[in-house]
Design a protein around this nucleic acid. Sequence first.
DNA 1: AGTAGCCTTACATTTACCTTAAATCTGCTA
DNA 2: TAGCAGATTTAAGGTAAATGTAAGGCTACT
Lengths: 222, 222
Amino acid sequence: MKTKILVLEDDNSISQLICMNLEAAGFLTIPILDGLEAQAYLQTEQSKEISLALVDVMLPGKDGFSLMEDFQKVDIPVIYLTAKDDVISKVQGLKSGAEDYMVKPFEILELLVRIEKVLERTGRGREMIQIHDVSIHLKEHSVTKNGVPILLKPMEYELLVTLASNKNIALSREELLQRIWGTDFIGETRTVDVHIAQLRKKLDFHQVIRTVSKTGYRLEEL
Amino acid sequence: MKTKILVLEDDNSISQLICMNLEAAGFLTIPILDGLEAQAYLQTEQSKEISLALVDVMLPGKDGFSLMEDFQKVDIPVIYLTAKDDVISKVQGLKSGAEDYMVKPFEILELLVRIEKVLERTGRGREMIQIHDVSIHLKEHSVTKNGVPILLKPMEYELLVTLASNKNIALSREELLQRIWGTDFIGETRTVDVHIAQLRKKLDFHQVIRTVSKTGYRLEEL
DNA sequence: AGTAGCCTTACATTTACCTTAAATCTGCTA
DNA sequence: TAGCAGATTTAAGGTAAATGTAAGGCTACT
């Protein structure tokens, strides 16, 4: 079952942009445009299925910060979205119990990374990502192909998860290095190639992981 | 849906020139001639659909710099246009939160490049460019014709994207070389012809990519 | 010291691309 | 309209660059 994410953002175009991207990444989204409506929604039975909420701080009806306790009551982790990049509201946001904080305008890719981290950390992560005949069991940190366990080394696993969370998006070697190895990594970009080769071999993904010449790699599905 | 760009420029002829070119490039433009009017427009519901604003610094009503916070409030990235090329206002412009800065008189082509970059950076980038029956999937770095994948080599892809981002605008061989191959490229301009030929063949664009004799090429639509 | 994981290196293979050259087209002049 | 010159199209091949892959050695943990 798909992971549900509540998107509480009053700006309709931003809301749509976020939802579109989350849906593309395999989530199910519940867009809500104002604070009071959100508060009401949290009372309903459906709200139990929400795994995470993205909350704009500036909202009509009721502002994001004061909604925090409503979310805490039903145990939904929150990532704040805000245009303010001043330290004061940042501190206030995290202190008030948010799991993370994003300053607008932000990169969708960065948002996806943070979402995955929060879901992981709070144990609400997607349990599984499917690509063709292989399943990535995120909680178990394991991978199977047609039910048969495939042993991946840590880096290979991370690489696969990164590619799989960005299906059909071309990722450059630099991007992959930055996201998996960290910003501080100094070394050859060829390193990526070697790990890609391992994944292709172990999973028989020679066609699934496509090289985008002079650019990077893309995991294809559909 | 087409990307909407707000053009805030008091000189009517310049405004028209910019709008004409942006429309030709596939954007939808909202020309506004004075500062106060712009401020009012940002309060309206329609303004939510704006992806980017081009703002002249010298304006009647209210000047561009002081409008910055209005744009930030509704989270619209700004590129300043100005006749002043002195460092002081440049610094002031960027410091005040603009995404970029163009000094008049500027090349329309350069403006288009910067617009694309800002849209990309702020996550408002177009994901797809359509030309007749072919779709360029920018994130995937792939191209399909009637849904059928077409394999393009890196240079061909770049060339297509460049032409497609400048629909109906004739680009000279020199311009294409500079923009795709880089300023440091030393070699024949005939090189461009070869790649154009490949594109025409692979995409069946014999009529769509038109030769502008003694000048260069133009990708036509409508 | 042994082991597992990972980065690098080096070589093989594949892919991309610039050039060349011949064919074709275009527009001009007679 | 024929002929010509210059411009453009297109195919092909050599070379350069990018990628694939196996193997070795380094590092950190036992």
